[in-house]
C-alpha cells in the first residue's frame, strides 16, 4: 500500500469536514445566521487537503475569498471558524474579519483575501522570510483562474523565480472567474504553459483526483524546501455552487452542476479509489462521516450561542499595536 492508513483517514476526514462545513455554511447563510457574503469551496476539497496535509503550523498558506477549505485543511479550528463567519466575538478574528477575511496566523494561515490577486505577493513575503531566516518553511498561495490574470500574481511569480523563493503557486482552475468563463478570461490556451514561461516548473493536474494533486504538490513542496525555488501547479476542479451563495448562476450550462456533482465529485472519487484498491474500508469512512456531522452540528450550535461583539470595547480595538 503506497499510503499509510492513518494518512488516508486523515485526508478523508479533512475533505469530508470541508464538505460538511461548506454545506452547513450555505444552509446557515440561507437561514439568515451568516451575515454578508459567503463564497463556498465545496467541490474543491481535494486540492486544499492535498496541499496542506503534510504542512506544519510554521509553513504558511495564503488563501482567497473562497477560503474555508484552505483554513480547515491547514488545521484551523472549525468552531472558531463558524463563530467568525457568524460574526461572533469569540471567532478566529473576533468577528471583525468574517468569511472573506478569515485568518489564523498561529496555524500558518495568512488569511482569506477579498481582493482577487491580493495573496500571492504576500505569500512571496512569507517565502522570503523563510529563505532569509533559514527556517526551511514552505509558503503556498492559493489562487484562482481569475487571479491568474492579475498583475499582482504575475509580478509575484516573476519575483519568486528571480529570488528563488520557496513558494508553491497553486491555481485552482474551477472554470469560472466569478461569472466569467476561465477560457474567456485566460487569453492563452494553457495557464500552465503561461506560468512555465516565468521560468519555473509548472504542472497541470486533475484537481478532482486527490492522489494526483497530492503527488504533484509534494514534489513542488519538497523542491521549495530544498532551495529549488517556486513551482506552479494548476489543479482543474469544479465549483459546486455559485460564485457567492445566492448567485443564480444563470451563466452556467444546463445540467452542468448536476453532472459535475455526479461525475467529478472529488470525495466520491477518493472513496471509490481507496475502496477499489482495498486501502480503506467504507465502514471506516462512514464512521468519520458521522463524527464530522456531529462536530459541525456542535460548531453551529456553539456559533449561534456565542457572544456578539460589544461595540463599546471591540470597535476601536486592534487597529494598531499601540497608538
Amino acid at each position: 500500500m503506497p499510503y499509510q492508513e492513518e494518512f488516508l483517514l486523515r485526508a478523508y476526514r479533512s475533505m469530508r469536514t470541508i464538505r460538511e462545513f461548506e454545506e452547513r455554511c450555505i444552509a446557515e447563510f440561507m437561514g439568515g445566521n451568516v451575515p454578508g457574503f459567503v463564497h463556498a469551496s465545496n467541490g474543491q476539497e481535494a486540492i486544499a487537503v492535498a496541499a496542506c496535509i503534510d504542512l506544519s503550523d510554521s509553513d504558511i498558506i495564503g488563501s482567497t475569498h473562497r477560503g474555508h477549505g484552505h483554513c480547515i485543511a491547514k488545521g484551523c479550528d472549525i468552531g472558531g471558524m463558524m463563530k467568525e463567519i457568524m460574526g461572533r466575538s469569540t471567532g478566529l478574528c473576533k468577528g471583525k474579519g468574517g468569511s472573506m477575511h478569515i485568518a489564523d496566523i498561529d496555524k500558518g494561515m495568512l488569511g482569506a483575501n477579498a481582493i482577487v490577486g491580493g495573496g500571492p505577493p504576500l505569500v512571496n513575503g512569507a517565502a522570503l522570510a523563510s529563505k532569509t531566516l533559514g527556517t526551511k518553511n514552505v509558503a503556498i498561495s492559493f489562487n484562482g483562474d481569475g487571479s491568474a490574470n492579475q498583475g499582482t500574481a504575475m509580478e509575484a511569480m516573476n519575483m519568486a523565480v528571480v529570488l528563488q523563493l520557496p513558494h508553491v503557486f497553486i491555481y485552482e482552475n474551477n472554470g469560472y472567474a466569478e461569472g466569467t468563463a476561465a477560457n474567456y478570461g485566460l487569453g492563452c490556451d494553457s495557464l500552465t504553459d503561461r506560468n512555465a514561461g516565468f521560468g519555473m516548473p509548472a504542472e497541470c493536474v486533475d484537481g478532482n483526483d486527490f492522489f494526483a494533486t497530492y503527488e504533484a504538490i509534494k514534489v513542488a513542496t519538497q523542491r521549495a524546501r530544498d532551495g529549488g525555488g517556486p513551482t506552479s501547479i494548476e489543479a482543474k476542479c469544479v465549483r459546486f455552487d455559485g460564485h457567492f451563495i445566492g448567485d443564480p448562476q444563470l451563466y452556467r450550462g444546463k445540467d452542468e452542476v448536476k453532472n459535475a456533482r455526479k461525475n467529478q465529485d472529488c470525495l466520491k472519487i477518493f472513496r471509490d479509489r481507496v475502496i477499489k484498491e482495498g486501502w480503506l474500508k467504507a465502514a471506516a469512512m462512514n464512521a468519520i462521516d458521522k463524527e464530522i456531522k456531529a462536530e459541525i452540528e456542535q460548531a453551529v450550535a456553539d456559533g449561534l450561542a456565542a457572544p456578539h461583539p460589544d461595540p463599546a470595547t471591540d470597535l476601536m480595538s486592534d487597529v494598531y499595536c499601540s497608538y
Partner: peptide, 13 residues
C-alpha cells in the same frame, strides 16, 4: 455583462 465564454445565459449579471 457577465457570462462571457460560459455555456449558460448571456448578460447573466
Amino acid at each position: 455583462s457577465g457570462g462571457a465564454g460560459c455555456d449558460g445565459e448571456d448578460d447573466a449579471y
